[in-house]
Write a protein that binds this DNA or RNA. Structure first.
Lengths: 251, 251
DNA sequence: AAACGTGGTTTCCTAATAAGAAACGAAAGA
DNA sequence: TCTTTCGTTTCTTATTAGGAAACCACGTTT
């Protein structure tokens, strides 16, 4: 632990909390360090543009460098590596099949799959396209798009019947989407494939737009109501964490 | 200058440039510092979440803390204080009236005004609403909105004639807007007020959306073609700088 | 399979340096 | 005008950051 660096970073955190900035003395009190030491740290941070001093009030606030790096960073974060550790957690906690599905220009794709350890498995392929109306992730994705985009997708793909449970009525689907938005997750019981049940939650990016969804799927015999209830909680929790990793600030 | 902090910040900058991260040795070479020193610095940065280590590759990359702070930060930056110093520069460089105009939900307002030092002045008030079709800033603002939003505004406000030069024909206005988009600035010669000429450039935020415009205005007798040419260059330059301060990455 | 190389991590010592005390200077308030 | 406050500077000493070298884990080569 490099002490001066530690202190410098604490200064940054402190300064970032006060939009209008803080004075040297104020910072010195909070960090519990000598004024002159704080001053020197601030100067170093200033030289790098991480902190800047208001010319009039003499107070210190976050600098342009921070903003510069942030925006570049937010644009360049990759979903997959950010999500991976959380997906792994879901895998070990549930022992079911975990899917990461991204939405990109009218299409949804599986980009990650974790198998779980149990023997009875659902079959799926990374890269395969996802049905929007008949899967939990698909429903979650369209539920959080703007209405126009969702309408275009549904228009284009229609509502083909996959099983007896598939929602083929548009009105019913719209109600289902509303439900998904309010409760924060989506469930699908044998709507896509007989014997398979699924639960999914959304991932949002730094602009607040939906970019992906995570689903947990398994045999309906195992994913019964009480089990889904358990899984739901941790699924939503991890999805929120992934969203925050992408810079999402809501919730 | 606190040396260790300086080095730590250089590490951050370095790491931020490589999306996939860097190893200790790699960093040590670039910073020209001993491996162990770099290691200790990295550990400190890690403890604060500014840097994180990939579990598999062992490489170091920017951490969640950065992302967390950035997104909060980008949402909370105030345009006015960011723009102020650049507007002052424009003022001293041109000696004309400088206006900062924000766009917010269908309306445009002056939120900042700098007078210049010369005697002959245009009159305007901070807080006053801005005409969209008859001023250079107004035109710049609608030029960079999406078509639907621009159409709504024009529909609502119409194209009232202020002077003989006011553009009252919709087709002609649309052509003008196209021109503004391609050349990156807008000019208005006595379209809003007889005797006053104006030039304006756009400011974009971190999402790439237009949020404001800066205009420089003065008597037409002084703001002649060659003078406008000079002013144009520095105006666009400062506007770009302000945009970058707000996290804009384009250009 | 053993030797070698590479890259991350740890240890330890000492020279470099960050921290603190105190003084200074400018600005704001009484 | 005097006082207080706050940012800045100076200087000295105890702290500590940095460097050399060794260590360890892993992968590759011979």
């Amino acid at each position: 632990m490099v002490k001066s660096v530690d202190r410098a970073l604490r200064i940054i955190t402190l300064v970032s909390q006060k939009k209008d900035g803080l004075g040297v003395t104020e910072i010195a009190e909070k960090i519990e360090l000598n004024k002159s030491s704080i001053f020197k740290l601030l100067r170093t941070l200033m030289d790098h543009g991480y902190i800047e001093q208001d010319e009039e009030t003499k107070k210190y606030r976050l600098g342009y460098k921070y903003i510069e790096l942030s925006s570049i960073l937010l644009e360049s974060i990759d979903l997959r590596p950010q999500a991976k550790p959380f997906l792994k957690e879901l895998e070990t906690l549930t022992n079911e099949v975990i899917h990461l599905v991204v939405y990109d220009q009218g299409e949804a794709y599986y980009i990650e799959k974790l198998e779980g350890n149990e023997t009875l498995r659902t079959h799926s392929k990374v890269g395969k396209r996802v049905s929007f109306h008949a899967t939990s992730v698909g429903k979650v994705l369209i539920a959080h798009m703007d209405d126009q985009e969702a309408a275009t997708i549904l228009e284009k793909n229609g509502l083909p019947k996959h099983t007896d449970n598939t929602i083929t009525d548009k009105e019913k689907l719209l109600q289902e989407l509303q439900k998904i938005r309010t409760q924060g997750f989506g469930v699908e019981i044998e709507e896509n494939e007989v014997g398979i049940t699924c639960i999914a939650a959304p991932i949002f990016d730094h602009r607040g737009d939906i970019t992906a969804g995570v689903s947990i799927s398994g045999p309906s015999t195992r994913l019964t109501e009480p089990r889904l209830e358990e899984i739901k909680t941790i699924l939503i929790d991890r999805c929120n964490k992934i969203s925050r990793r992408l810079g999402y600030t809501g919730v």
